Structures are given as C-alpha cells and as structure tokens.
Simulated scan of single mutants.
Amino acid sequence: MALDPKRVVLGWPNYIDDVTVSGGDYVETLPLANVQDRRFSVVAKTNGLDPTATQFVMTFPQRRPVAVVAIPAHNMSSSALVRVRVYRDQDGNDLVWDSGKRDVWPIVYGIADVIWGNDNFWNRRMQEGTRRSYTPLLTVFMDDAQIAGRIHVELFDEANLEGSLTLGRVFVSDVWQPHYNISLGPQYGYDSGTEVTTAKDQSRTEYFERFTPKRTVQMSLDWLSESEAFLRIHRLQRTQDIVGEILFVQSVKPSPIEFARTMIARQQSLDPLSHPYQLTYTNQLNLLEIL
C-alpha cells in the first residue's frame, strides 16, 4: 500500500549490518564497509567523482521488505542526484523498482528565505554556500514496500568541489504507519549539549563549549489497535531498546518543513503501553536525533 502523506512514518529495523556491501571505488583507509559503522562520523570516501566510483550495492542474506534507503552525514552538493534500484533476487536480474534520477537535497527554503533576483528565487533550490548549515540526510522512499534481495545505489555529483563523496552509516529498512496518525500536540525541540562555565571573576565571565544540537520529538499515539500496540510498538521497544535506529518522518510529501523534521533517531525512554479504552491502546514516543 502506498504511503499516506497525512500520517507519520517510522522506519526500522536498519538492515545495513546484515547486508554485504560492494561496488564503487573507495579510499583504502575509508572503505565502503564504513557505511555499516554505527558512528555517523566514521565515513566511506570515494576515489574521485566518476559515477563508476560513486555507487554501491547492498546484497541481502535473504529477501527483506524494504521501503526506504537513507544516507546521513554525506557531503553531496546542492546539485547532486541519486538513483536507487531494487531487485527481488540477490544477483540483480529481477528489477522490481527504479527511482530514476532524483535530487539528493529537497527544497529546504521557504518563500521568505529567498531574495528577489537570486538565481534560486523561483525554484528555491539550496545554494551551495549554505549547504553546510543543514544536517545532511538523503532519503529515498519507494512507492510501495518492495521485497528486496539486492539494492543498487548510484550517486551523481561530478561538480562536487571537494573532489570526492563521503557517506555516513546507510539506513535501509521497512516502514510503518499507524492506522490513526499521531495526536495533536507533538513537541519538537533540541537537546543542546553545549556547556557553559562561569569564571569566578567580578564579571562572572562565561565560557562556552559548543556542540551540535540534536533534534528531539515527543509524540503520542492514542488510537492504537491491539495488534498495532503489541506487534508494532511493543516489538519496537523490545528489538530497538533505547539504542536502535529509527527513521522519523512526519510526512513523506517533500517540503522545507518536512526536511526540517526528518531524522534518524533513537528512543530516549521506553514508555509503557496504556489501555484506556476497550480495544484501544496508547503510547508516548520520545525520540532523540543521532548525529
């Protein structure tokens, strides 16, 4: 069933640890295998920008349901393109889905963010000079969940000024949408992490050790069926605990607002399922971004 843009999307588990990665051309000291490292700061780096180098293949040990491929912590430029092809078999002969070439970066600016006369006024495309101020996260959603034995990801960014591509831990998973959307009242915020030290002088001078803030979201699922409660949320808590990666997307319809909310996160706490009404369960989700 196609994803409903009016309902939240949660993706898990991340299959990347179980697949075999191959293809492309990567620096020996920063190999393709680094896309399987849990630390987003440990990246794979391509040898140059030729499309034969900037690609990779994920081969599954057995067929899996897959609905999204995401790449965080990348350095792809504002004009980069991506293509994802999904094959039912492990040998790559039975093609079941092809994204075609798509923009890596969605529209990230609102109307008030662009200036009349600039070359991006009408299309609101990202300007290369501001790319580093955004948290990089490429997401490619399939039209419907596919049964995958092999996935081929191609990246096209021959204009990249850095001369090579870097890729963080790849996220590839199935997704779930609750039958009823999250309730009104979700809370979005940041976990700062920045430390402030006050000197013991007359002016009480402050010194700052700044860290990148991590996004947070707290939401309530108030109308879960019994099967959703125990075969989705209860299972999510058991399998992912507070360390497992979860892709959070409030709507798959691309927009600057949705890009600002989309993140790979983990649960900060495992809140219990409540059973306030006959055949109805509720649960609070508290997510913290992984950087």
Results as ranks from 00 to 15, higher is better:
Glu258Cys: 00
Lys253Glu: 11
Gly189Phe: 01
Gln268Asn: 12
Val42Ala: 13
Glu154His: 06
Gly149Trp: 05
Asn123Arg: 06
Val217Tyr: 11
Pro276Leu: 02
His275Pro: 12
Glu289Leu: 03
Arg266Ile: 07
Ala112Asn: 14
Arg169Gln: 01
Ser251Pro: 08
Asp201Gln: 01
Gly117Ile: 07
Leu165Lys: 00
Arg150Ala: 04
Asn118Arg: 15
Leu236Asn: 08
Asp157Glu: 08
Ile242Val: 14
Thr282Tyr: 14
Ala44Gly: 08
Ile242Ala: 13
Leu287Met: 04
Val217Trp: 11
Asn47His: 14
Glu289Met: 00
Gln240Ala: 07
Val27Lys: 09
Val42Arg: 09
Val21Pro: 09
Thr139Ser: 07
Arg150Gly: 02
Leu273Lys: 01
Thr262Gly: 04
Phe208Ser: 08
Asp143Leu: 06
Arg204Pro: 05
Arg102Trp: 06
Thr54Arg: 12
Gln202Val: 10
Asn75Phe: 04
Asn14Pro: 06
Gly149Arg: 06
Asp222Tyr: 08
Ala67Asn: 13
Ser225Ala: 04
Glu28Ala: 15
Thr20Asn: 13
Glu258Pro: 00
Ala70Pro: 04
Gln62Val: 10
Thr282Lys: 12
Gly193Phe: 03
Asp191Pro: 12
Phe259Trp: 10
Gln278Thr: 15
Arg7Glu: 05
Asn14Asp: 06
Pro136Gln: 04
